Amino acid sequence: LAAAWLLNLLLLLSRRFSPRERTGLNLPWLFMGLVALTGAWLAFVKLHGRADHGPQLMLFAMILVWVADSGAYFAGRAFGRRKLAPHISPGKTVEGVLGALAGGAVAGTVLIWLKWLPLSPVVVVLLCVGTVLVSVGGDLWESFLKRERGIKDSGNILPGHGGVLDRIDAQLASAPFFVGRLIALGVLS
């Protein structure tokens, strides 16, 4: 699932897929949404179940994405010039992604300081930066789905926030990646 999110990011940035406004029930998208929700849930359950620092690492994975989102917003507002994927989300910029990656590096530094992972500092920062990059793919995917539906917000429960899906889109992609990398690195089994 983590590799699928990486592939998703590359496909969205390649411009091979452009949103086409659709109506009605789309069973493949519904199935993919179910897989994304299930994958993130299973990743968080796996991370939370780790004997030492599991719940803290789960919260860290969530905070990592929130810090990245904030870094992207502020860097994009201050320096954003080059559009990342204007065919999907005209407001996202390359400079915003760089701000997100910087936020991920800072969060990785905090994780190193906390010593919750038995990994070298370079590996921890690369893990965090990679997770942030995948979270951008989740954010773009949700924007793609909204464009396909011809809507600006995924709901109105959280006014001014684009809906509940906007609050979890990056988590859906980043959680399986974060946990998958920890498994690959031998930290989780």
Rank of each mutant, 00 (worst) to 15 (best):
A102I: 14
H53D: 14
F79P: 04
G76N: 11
V97C: 06
A68P: 04
E95N: 10
A61L: 02
A78W: 14
A51F: 03
A102E: 02
V67Q: 05
R81N: 03
V97L: 15
Y73D: 11
L114Y: 08
L101H: 01
A100Y: 02
F60L: 11
G49A: 15
Y73E: 07
P86H: 13
R82P: 00
P118H: 09
S89I: 03
V45F: 04
L64H: 11
L98T: 11
V106S: 03
F74C: 05
G96Q: 06
L98M: 14
I63S: 12
T93D: 01
V110I: 13
A105R: 06
G54F: 01
F74V: 07
F79A: 13
L114S: 08
I88Y: 13
L57M: 12
A68K: 01
L64T: 06
A51C: 01
G54Y: 04
L59W: 08
G49M: 06
R50P: 00
Y73N: 07
A102Q: 02
A100T: 00
V45L: 12
H48D: 13
G91Y: 08
L47H: 09
V67N: 06
K83H: 11
H53T: 13
F79C: 11
T109I: 01
I112C: 14
R77C: 02
A102M: 12
W116R: 12
Q56S: 08
R81S: 07
G54P: 00
Y73Q: 05
W66Y: 07
A51T: 10
I112D: 05
R50I: 00
A61Q: 05
K92H: 07
L101R: 03
V106E: 07
H48T: 12
E95D: 10
L98H: 05
W113C: 01
P55N: 06
A43W: 07
L111V: 07
R50E: 03
G104K: 11
V94L: 14
P118G: 03
K83S: 05
G108E: 12
A61F: 03
A78H: 08
A68T: 07
G76A: 12
I63H: 05
Q56P: 00
R77K: 15
H53S: 14
H53F: 14
H87N: 14
K46Y: 00
K83Q: 10
V65W: 02
L64V: 04
H87M: 06
